[in-house]
Simulated scan of single mutants.
Amino acid sequence: MTHSPADHSHHDHSHAPEVTSTNERKVLISLVLISVFMVVELVGGLISGSLALLADAGHMLSDALALALAYAAFRFGRRSADQQRTFGYARLEVVAGFVNSLTLFAIVLWILYEAWQRFQSPYEILAGPMLGVAVAGLIVNLVVIWILTRGDAEHVNIRGALLHAVGDLLGSVGAVGAAIIIAYTGWTPIDPILSVLVSMLILRSAWKLLKASLHILLEGAPEGASADDIKSHLLNVDGVSDVSHVHVWSLTSGKALATLHVTPVDAKDARNVVAAVEAALHQRFGISHATIAVDWEDTAKCSLATVETSDHAHNCSEEHGPQDLQVRAKP
């Protein structure tokens, strides 16, 4: 027994998550602000001779590149799924987050190298221009952070851009502190010292972002939704006898998917079991799309059938004996 195409015409099986215009707009505004002030800070660093300002300008350059990547990823993410990319382009956002983390590591290495050079050959720093630019940078970074924390701040790409902005903020705070100390004491080594301290904080953030984005790219299970966790939970669902072949991963930030096999206690109750499993996956683990194969031991004579949990069900007739159903949960 088969369905005609019309039977499924009212369903939308596109799995590509929606990319919001709000996230896209936040990234674009932040990109413009960071790019403009990056030039100001670079000029200020060259004039004053401050490594703290130059380091922060370099970090702002990485911010601008990261935000440009994020914006491009959002634009691509709006493309619809096609025959070659059935999940759409949403994972480009995770790739951008991964690149963001790598640029942070590169900036840290550059800061450490420049700091070592400054320790070897200290030179005069103009505290006045340094302080003025640092305070302005502090204000710009606070504005950018405020923009990025409005709404979906846990999105992996927004989080990446936010970590960059926080790193910039710390750099600006360090530059302000260094400028004040130099103005009152003339002790210039404080400039590279504070730059190194800021780079350590940036390194910690970069490591967290690298792990989070790489985990998604490697098809890792979302936090709190391991295969063992899912199996243990589903074995408590009424009508479920066994759970096997569990695979769970994230398509992008906050979009979990899963495939698994379940064995019902009563073969005739397969439809209700699948509906209960689908609900349990969504309520307990936030899994919005699951492909569930229903099987049991004496499988064979009945042809494979596909069941939509929301409406249509194929049932082998009694004369065909035990059945093997693959049930696709409605996304």
Rank of each mutant, 00 (worst) to 15 (best):
H3W: 11
A6R: 13
H8E: 11
H10I: 06
H11E: 05
H11K: 12
D12K: 02
P17Q: 10
E18C: 15
E18T: 14
N23Y: 07
L28C: 12
S35D: 04
S35T: 11
V40E: 05
E41I: 14
V43I: 15
V43E: 08
G45Q: 04
G45W: 00
A55Y: 00
D56L: 03
D63W: 09
D63A: 07
D63G: 10
L67P: 00
L69W: 04
L69K: 00
Y71E: 07
A73S: 11
F74W: 07
F74K: 01
F74V: 01
S80C: 06
Q84L: 10
Y89W: 02
L92R: 04
E93C: 11
V94N: 07
V95F: 13
T103W: 03
L109G: 12
L112V: 10
A127Q: 09
L131D: 01
L138D: 09
V140I: 14
L142T: 11
V144I: 14
I145Y: 06
G151C: 04
A153R: 13
E154L: 14
A161K: 08
L170W: 08
L170M: 13
V173I: 14
A175P: 09
A179L: 13
I182H: 02
I182N: 08
G186T: 06
P189L: 10
D191S: 09
S195P: 10
S199K: 01
S205I: 00
W207T: 13
K208Y: 15
L209G: 02
L210G: 03
L210M: 14
A212P: 02
S213G: 03
A225F: 04
A225K: 03
S226R: 06
A227N: 10
D229M: 06
H233D: 08
L234W: 11
H245V: 08
L257Y: 02
A267P: 06
V274M: 08
V274K: 01
A275W: 13
A276E: 08
V277A: 07
A280Q: 05
I287Q: 00
I287N: 00
A300W: 14
K301S: 14
A305I: 07
V307P: 00
D311L: 12
H314G: 04
N315F: 11
D324F: 07
Q326L: 14
